[in-house]
Design a protein around this nucleic acid. Structure first.
Lengths: 127, 127
DNA sequence: CATACTAGTTTCCTAAAGGAAAGCGGTTTC
DNA sequence: GAAACCGCTTTCCTTTAGGAAACTAGTATG
């Protein structure tokens, strides 16, 4: 009783639905500066120019864009105070803590993988 | 007793060591085709041209490079059989199962996050 | 009115990822 | 010897991420 020539082979729909939530998650962590920014703002809320100094190497253009991304994903909030000159404080949200599980898994797996590959490389030289 | 002007502020070393294992992990999943390839080869081992067909849109050049990456990370093995014409089978390893924890966390968080952002967008239109 | 300060934006540029199309080496079949 | 099949590689091109440097708007102070 063969209803479909691709029996047993998952449909494209099925594959996409398996992969998309994962790529969604990866997407929000994507880019050179997302993690450093998340971690530095977890240490303490900071102003734009303070972040520029504490995250070494980032430029104003890229920082502005990354902060917008993080705000859109609700990992941080932007608070403006009408001092003169203005004060803008970026502060990490409690929602950013929801990343802890993911980040913990990534950390442990990444650490383990580095060791694994280090050993494999060594064994290729001296088998 | 102030020993250091940056007391309480983590050193750059400390930040790097917190972030690097995570970026290592993200790096191996990086790129447009890594996850589709991992998943398709978990379904069943396949030949080069079979993968080209089952992973819709990938080109030979990119596939060859991605397979090399996956092999270097020991997620797959490349098996060559001296038939004519040659048969090359790519097969996922049991080590690729070590990703299950990470992928599960990413999946759950990603699914939840998509919902969260969807609701936030709606509430911005109708507050 | 000039200067200073914050929080960005704008313009221009480079490097890397990825795609399209064609080609290639080895081996059989006709 | 031509054609076909497999598993790629090569060349050329476009898009995107990110960096350097300069500039801007708003609001004070002198």
């Amino acid at each position: 009783m063969k209803l479909n020539a691709n029996e047993g082979v998952p449909s494209k729909q099925e594959c996409v639905s398996k992969v998309r939530p994962i790529t969604d998650a990866l997407y929000v962590l994507n880019g050179k500066w997302k993690l450093p920014l998340i971690f530095t703002l977890r240490e303490n809320a900071q102003r734009f120019n303070e972040i520029l100094k504490s995250v070494e190497g980032i430029t104003p253009k890229v920082l502005a864009k990354e902060l917008r991304d993080l705000e859109n994903n609700e990992f941080i909030v932007r608070k403006v105070f009408p001092t003169t000159p203005v004060t803008v404080i970026y502060e990490s949200t409690s929602y950013s803590d929801s990343l802890n599980g993911v980040l913990g898994e990534l950390y442990n797996w990444g650490e383990q993988h580095r060791e694994k590959i280090r050993h494999s490389m060594r064994d290729r030289k001296r088998p």
